[in-house]
Each structure stands twice: as C-alpha cells, then as structure tokens.
C-alpha cells in the first residue's frame, strides 16, 4: 500500500503551478500530516484524465494520493467514470483546499465543486485597478 503525490500539467483550473511548485505543495502537505511519500506520479502535459495514476494504482495498490487541487480531477464523463471505478478505495487529499476523503460520493462532490468554480466568471486581476474594481462592484452589468 503506497502513498503517492501526483504532478500534473501546470495549468490547474485558475492556478498556474509549475511542477516543482506542485512538488513543494504536496510534499509540505504530506509532511504536515505525517505521510511518508513513496511515489511521485507524473501525469503528462495536457492530460486531465489521471490515467497514469490509475495505471500505477493497478501495479502498486495506492493507499493515499495527494494532489494540489480539486481542479486536477477529470471533467469528462468517461474519464470521471474510469477514475471513480478504479480508485474509489483510494484516499484523495487536495492540499490547497485542505480537504480529503475517499469513495464515489467524495470524488463526485469534489468534481462538482471544481465545475461550479470553473463556471464562475473571473475578473482578470492583471487588467484592472482598485478604482475599476469598485466600479465593477457597483455596475449592474455584473
């Protein structure tokens, strides 16, 4: 039974976290929770299916996996189905959100929450100013 951290593409929902940053976040989470990490699973660039993780699970029977965020979970129906079926007994930890759990319900709730946030509009903070943000707050457009 193995504890693993998972690295994915640096574009993680609204966040851009380079691989070494992901390693720092997940290793720090493991340390704070007294988990001894035995495996680092690199998911490929542009992949959202966690297929490598599922393949490793078949070989090594993962017990705990640590990811940076719920935004790293798949969004496509087929990929979700595969993940839930293959990894329902594995405990998932999401370091940035500070949440953990296992089973179909937990994974589907996390995916649903990620979807709600994905659908939320985001103001581009690089293209705005404090005054503009105050105007936005009072604008009927929003």
């Amino acid at each position: 039974m193995t504890i693993a951290i998972i690295n994915t593409d640096m574009n993680i929902g609204p966040f851009r976290i380079p691989g070494n940053g992901q390693n720092m976040i997940t290793n720090n989470y493991a340390e704070r929770n007294n988990f001894k990490v035995e495996e680092i699973i690199p998911e490929p660039f542009k992949s959202r299916s966690l297929a490598t993780t599922q393949w490793v699970h078949k070989k090594k029977r993962l017990k705990i996996v640590i990811l940076c965020s719920i935004h790293q979970l798949p969004l496509e129906k087929k990929r979700i189905k595969d993940l839930v079926n293959n990894m329902k007994k594995v405990e998932f930890h999401f370091a940035l959100e500070g949440i953990s759990g296992k089973g179909k319900r937990f994974l589907l709730d996390c995916i649903q929450e990620a979807k709600i946030f994905k659908d939320a509009r985001i103001i581009d903070s690089q293209k705005t100013s404090w005054s503009k943000l105050y105007k936005i707050k009072n604008s009927k457009k929003y």
């Binding site: 929902g13 719920i70 903070s125 929003y142």
Partner: peptide, 16 residues
C-alpha cells in the same frame, strides 16, 4: 454570491 465574478481567490480559499 456565486453568481458574481471571482478575483484571485478560488477553491484554495472559497467553497460552494
């Protein structure tokens, strides 16, 4: 409101 836009804080800070 979850119908209003977010700025920099996301699931790291907020939940539905």
């Amino acid at each position: 409101s979850c119908n209003k836009p977010l700025l920099q804080k996301n699931t790291d800070y907020l939940k539905y």
